[in-house]
Design a protein around this nucleic acid. Sequence first.
DNA 1: CATAATAGTGACTTTTTTATCCCTATGAGA
DNA 2: TCTCATAGGGATAAAAAAGTCACTATTATG
Lengths: 112, 112
Amino acid sequence: MEIQEKAAENKVCPLEIAVNTISGKWKIPIVWQINEGKKRPSEFLRGIGKVDRRVLNQQLKEMEQDGILTKESFNELPPRVEYSLTDIGKKLVEALWLLNDWGKLLIDKKKV
Amino acid sequence: MEIQEKAAENKVCPLEIAVNTISGKWKIPIVWQINEGKKRPSEFLRGIGKVDRRVLNQQLKEMEQDGILTKESFNELPPRVEYSLTDIGKKLVEALWLLNDWGKLLIDKKKV
DNA sequence: CATAATAGTGACTTTTTTATCCCTATGAGA
DNA sequence: TCTCATAGGGATAAAAAAGTCACTATTATG
């Protein structure tokens, strides 16, 4: 392999991108919540412990830009907004089950 | 489910722990490198782009404390240190393949 | 004698990420 | 009229993560 190729490859390691994409502090809780179905911002707020509105919005926005979530705004009053998982988001959830199992291993190991 | 149970459960979500464990900036590159076999710190430094010694050591230390890596120090001069994957570390690698595939999906999708 | 290679850390700065606080706007209902 | 619910953002502060620089120590090599 040419060194240029290796350099280019390093820059777009799919796993690094994947991990960065899910690394925000509230993103995993968001994923669990929304895996149950469409959710409004206020529902996230109630469902996730002590997240601030501002911060929640930031994370939701990033996830939307990353193509994991879709945002739907209804022209009503009071305003209504709903987030849902995209196809890619659903595939992410599938990939995360394995990692969840690994997390259990890690927890069990620390208990011993 | 009691609300106390739910609260307790939220505090130890295995997936959150797993994601936190691999979230350091250089941890994925470290995992790829060491998946090929034992590695010395200097090899990591050469193998991974522009990591600083200091920062690399921090990440290695965390991964060691998390039980992913084992550190072996030889009483030689010049000093020799070798890191290797633990069993749990190897299982982590297996779990990461799926996430790597998902990362590819994400990349392909953005290209379109 | 100077330099390079090995591994490591203390003190500090910079950058990034999270959190806090206070605003906007609208309609329903007490 | 006052309060609550809805959703959102600007300005700023605090905390966490990453990066920088300079130093320790030892042996081999030029």
